[in-house]
Design a protein around this nucleic acid. Sequence first.
RNA 1: GGGCUCGUGGUCUAGUGGCUAUGACGUCGCCCUCACACGGCGAAGAUCGAGAGUUCAAUUCUCUCCGAGCCCACCA
Length: 802
Amino acid sequence: METKNKGGKGEGRQSKIEEKRWDKVIEIPIARKWKDNKLYAFDRKSKKPVYSIDTPPPYVNTPVHIGQAATYVLMDMFARFRRMTGHNVLFPLGLDRNGLPIEMAAERKFGIKLGDVTRERFIKMCRSVLEESSSATEETFFRLGISFNSWKAGEEVGDIYHTDSPDYRSLTQDSFIDLWNKGLIYEDDRINNFCPGCGTTIADAEVIYRDLPSKFNDIIFRVKETGEKIIIGTTRPELICTCAMVIFNPKDDRYRSLEGKTAVTPVFGKEVPIKSHPYAEMDKGTGLMMMCSAGDLTDIRFFREMNLEPLIAIGSNGLMNEHAGFMKGLTVQQARGKMIEVLIEKKLLVKQKDTVHRTPVCERSKDPIEFISMKEFYLKQMDCKKKMLELAKKISFYSPRSRQIMIDWINSVSIDWPISRRRYYATEIPIWYCAKCKHPILPPKGEYYQPWKDKCPWETCPKCGHGEFYGEDRVFDTWFDSSMSPLYILKYSRDGEFFRRNSPCSLRPQGKEIIRTWLYYTVLKDYLLTGELIFRDAWINYHIVDDNGKKMSKSLGNIIDPQEVIKRFGAEPFRMWCAIEGNLENTDFRCSFDRIEGTHKTLTKIWNVARFVSMFPKPGKRPELEPADRWIMNEVNKLVKNARKCYEKYDFHTPAAEIKHFIWETFASNYIEMVKTRAYNENGDFSKQEQESACFALNHALETVLRLLAPVNPFLTYRLYEELTGKDIHFTEFPEPEKGPEKKMQFTTEELAELNSGIWKAKKDKGESLKSEIEKMEMPKKFREIGSDLRRMHNISKLSFV
RNA sequence: GGGCUCGUGGUCUAGUGGCUAUGACGUCGCCCUCACACGGCGAAGAUCGAGAGUUCAAUUCUCUCCGAGCCCACCA
């Protein structure tokens, strides 16, 4: 296609930029160049203040999803902005490779379960899953233009780190040793959440709730003293064997006579006391409630409160044990069916009703949680709830509203944090035990230990002098690892000087759904280790939903794959979309290919504005500016001020929308149209100074806008800035508002836009072309100062002001 | 049950105690005007969820209700 300015009237004027629009293929060589030149490497010698971002390590075995892509793009904007404001930015990529998601992927891939093969073999299988998956994640981030310090895994500041590297794991183990020595760790045998699918204890934070269908059974008990029948409703008949008490509400007159009597459980014939207790609600079921050990969390609390001895009928393998009598060896589901059969046979089941039961399930495997007693390690957290609240108030949250989520969670914490897990692919708990006296022995810090296969570093037991040991075989909760990330990237306990200078970490960006885990545990653990608050800012992003406001999920088939987005549009439209559409902090926001593609038009517009401006070289010296040019500089100045203010607060949405509006409306439609003739100055109607003023303002305004957009659209702005100025936009500073008193214009921008629009409409209504001549026109005198530009813009022969 | 959001043209969205309520997509009309037809100019389209209150004035503040979503607790 031929460009219009070649030949014809625009003779001699040629745009430096040939292509008519932004093309995604330009991105790849640019990204590669940046990578090859190590443009974003962290400079340890730099004197600039460090701005550090504790990026959320994604799991490597699943492709990057759209939410992560958007989050990383936004983080990248933060990083690029800080670089332009004179910071030495620490922005490393971390990859999470520990824990259940990897193990479950390995189990699926090899068709095995944890206990089926040796530990060595299982770990090998996990490794093989990991090897396959790592590079896809990095490739996606690379194509999105994320400015990580490094693309190489390593131990230098800013390198890609793996949470399963010996270096990272040893730091996790060090933290355990420190906390142990501070007396903050203890082992206890207590009822806990147990996931039968994962075969391990899990923390409250890992429990979620699902509505699952269940049956509500009305079952006959007998009162020993009177022989009368009482009916109790339950969804867990298999737990009748552990029933320790029957209760009713103190206000419930129906059962007052039962107070202090004894109930006999069906089938098992166990005698249990009947008491009144407010836990029982009058309108639930029959109003009578059997209290079984560990049916759910209420039961646990109740047993603790009433000092009842819990009888655990579910073993650590998830199967019913000897306390379940005839149900021994069955799974919980099987046992329930069997119990119902027996009850029916004995005519003890009065009624069965379908119900939906909000069931606690494991966050990872989605198996219903059972409550069983096991020995686990705990980190004391109950003692520092007050301190945690204090710290939560000290963090600067963006938006501030998100703080409440953390506060709510802290207030609801009710037991210490169980940190040990019975899995394989995770950081090992670094303890050996004396084979004779069972005394626990911790190794010295600084090494990565695998006690289940390594030799104990001590020769003899310091307590009894015995020389044989066995290693601990449990591992840590993944959050015990993840909560080390800011300490790890800041070289805590590895480079004391670096850590002291650069702690606390500037920013923790993360999703709202892991405030109660990642954010809470990190702040908690790092406080216990260092005595300080580890973050200055926390930026909490919400969710991306589909075009109809529905959650994206594989089963609904409404997933937007970022790899597909990159393939179709490249990175820049997506990046622009992230900035413009996402009031990310406010609510969930919607995403579709159409919406992303929509921003492409703005990129084309910027491209063509730049093509136009590039026809007019920037004068070396700033000339005395004409009023219209001063006006556009004022407008740019407003943009700069606001962008600075908002970017500081992690708000890219407001400035991006403003900049977009500026480019389309103010700059392209009004300013360019107005000064075009003066910039061309074909008939020599204008003085050299007048022409240069236009050329200067055109260039200056555009350059400034490009710099404002550089964090949002690095590829596009890099390319255009290079064309226009020959310089690399990376090495320019973020624009400062121009100082000195602005000369106020007589008119406002809105008034000018209205005036122009009115003239265009009038010509339109008369069926005339926009450049047709207007013989005579009057306009308000506030426009006098830009009169000559307006006269040429609209081709007015006689212009007067009133 | 406790807490937190949100409800603005067909769709999505901005915004504010006070001019005729922002913009985008979509729809319709006209225009290839020397940066851009992935463009330009213009038109139609909203009683700002419902009701009450505070106020000279409410879409904006307060309360109630209706509707949507999220988090926490709980459901024997």
